[in-house]
Design a protein around this nucleic acid. Structure first.
Lengths: 153, 153
DNA sequence: CGTCGATAGATGCATATGCATCTAAATCGG
DNA sequence: CCGATTTAGATGCATATGCATCTATCGACG
């Protein structure tokens, strides 16, 4: 009946704590980069997500699942991006309540510019920290975690 | 000269993306719990960090390294906690500029209450998602990442 | 010592965020 | 088909956040 000296609950708490702190540490560095003088990190996240969207158009509520922001905050964030000419709104054709979003050309270009720098910064932080195999394993574990958590509706 | 079809830079970006999204997904669930009606998650984080501090007292600037908040925001967050009687301030004895922080009894009790529930929620999210071995590996990798990132002055 | 640059925190001010609520459109039940 | 419920998004309002700046202290150096 010997245990490994650590309860499952405690292990989960420590794992989350460690994941969270790592995220804070990396995020701090990334936010400090010069790219995020032009757009806040949440705003960039929206531009990035739109850039990955195959059809180009994305519903506001789908976007909201992706981002750590309340519905109202996202609504206003998008309003700001629209005022800056970075995104375009359109009423959803199949749902009169819905709003579709798309990057403008200026938005797509800005995303690419910042994205390039951002990716370089990320690589500069993760590269020296973890081997390629470790990064792959970390990616696998966090994907698994995300899908499991997201699955419980 | 065959590669595995993925550049190091791209791998790092995907790894970070995955880590970040997992953090968002988990954080969303945790924030929705009833515990965080009483204190915001950042506020809880401060109470938690103070509760782990061996001497009980912690410098404000050390606390700031831990939390994803600007110096001024932390200053005001602590001010709020003090007004609510959850923490106590003291001038640092060895540094006339510094401020030391400590939980009050009420603060310690609140932290424990919320902490219990929080840990249960975390366990409920990570437990079904990852095996114990996977959690340990995730903890190891994120610790390694954090230390590497934090190390660069 | 006295001056100068650096560091710890606090504060004014503009902006971002979240909660509660509102409107409009879709969906459900009879 | 109509009223009731649910869902998507917008908005008023209070609060939280960040940037720039200010004050006070520390530490280095002449």
């Amino acid at each position: 009946m010997a245990t490994d000296g650590e309860s499952p609950v405690r292990l989960a708490a420590e794992t989350w704590e460690s994941l969270f702190r790592a995220q804070v540490a990396v995020m701090r560095k990334l936010q400090a980069g010069p790219a995020f003088k032009k757009v806040a990190i949440n705003e960039y996240d929206v531009l990035f997500t739109l850039s990955r969207c195959p059809s180009g158009w994305l519903r506001l509520n789908e976007l909201n699942d992706h981002v750590l922001l309340s519905q109202s905050s996202l609504s206003r964030l998008v309003e700001r991006l629209e005022k800056r000419g970075l995104v375009e709104r359109m009423a959803a054709p199949e749902d009169g309540r819905g709003v579709l979003l798309k990057l403008t050309d200026a938005g797509a270009e800005l995303q690419k510019d910042i994205g390039r720098e951002h990716v370089r910064d990320i690589s500069g932080l993760l590269g020296p920290a973890l081997t390629a195999a470790e990064q792959k394993e970390l990616r696998r574990l966090t994907e698994k975690l995300r899908h499991s958590v997201g699955a419980r509706h």
